[in-house]
Simulated assay, not measured.
Amino acid sequence: MNQSMSRKGKSTDNGLIASFFGTLKREMFFGFQQNFQLLTELNQAIKEYIHYYNTKRIKSKLKGLTPIEYRVSVLKTSQ
């Protein structure tokens, strides 16, 4: 992932990733702050969250499925 260098308020080029980082911060950090002693600890926590986000986190917008389950169901119906 690369940080966007667009001007403030012009996130059209990185809207998806900006939304993801907002969700990550809201669900992983705000109210649940942890003191990471090493950057590797933070890196591991983010990797675990991304795994959770894709494989276990149910979204109502995806018909009550996880993102991976939804993608698989869409691929099955399009074949």
Rank of each mutant, 00 (worst) to 15 (best):
D13I: 11
Y53I: 05
G15M: 04
Y70G: 01
K8E: 11
K47M: 10
K47H: 15
Y52Q: 14
Q33M: 11
Q44D: 14
K25T: 11
F20M: 14
G64Y: 12
S4E: 10
E48G: 03
M5D: 08
N43I: 04
M5N: 07
N54L: 04
T23N: 10
N14A: 03
S78Y: 12
Q34H: 13
N54S: 14
K76P: 00
S73I: 02
Q44P: 01
A45F: 02
E41R: 04
Y53M: 01
N2V: 04
E69Y: 01
G9E: 07
S19A: 06
T55I: 02
E41N: 13
T23M: 09
T40N: 14
I58N: 08
M1E: 05
L39A: 03
R71G: 01
L65R: 06
E48Q: 15
L38I: 02
N35A: 08
T55V: 06
N54F: 13
K25P: 12
L62E: 00
S60Q: 10
Y49V: 01
I50H: 05
S60C: 09
Q33T: 09
D13P: 00
F30T: 07
I17C: 03
Q3P: 10
F30N: 11
N54A: 09
T12N: 09
D13Y: 09
Y52T: 05
I58M: 11
V74P: 00
K47S: 15
Q79E: 13
K47V: 06
Y70L: 06
G22S: 15
G9A: 11
K25E: 14
S73M: 13
Q44W: 03
Q37A: 05
N35W: 06
K56M: 14
N35G: 04
K63N: 14
R71Y: 12
I50A: 10
I50K: 05
E27C: 02
K56V: 05
E48R: 13
G15I: 03
A45C: 09
V74S: 02
R7I: 04
L65W: 00
K61W: 02
T77G: 03
T40M: 12
S19G: 10
L39W: 08
K8Q: 09
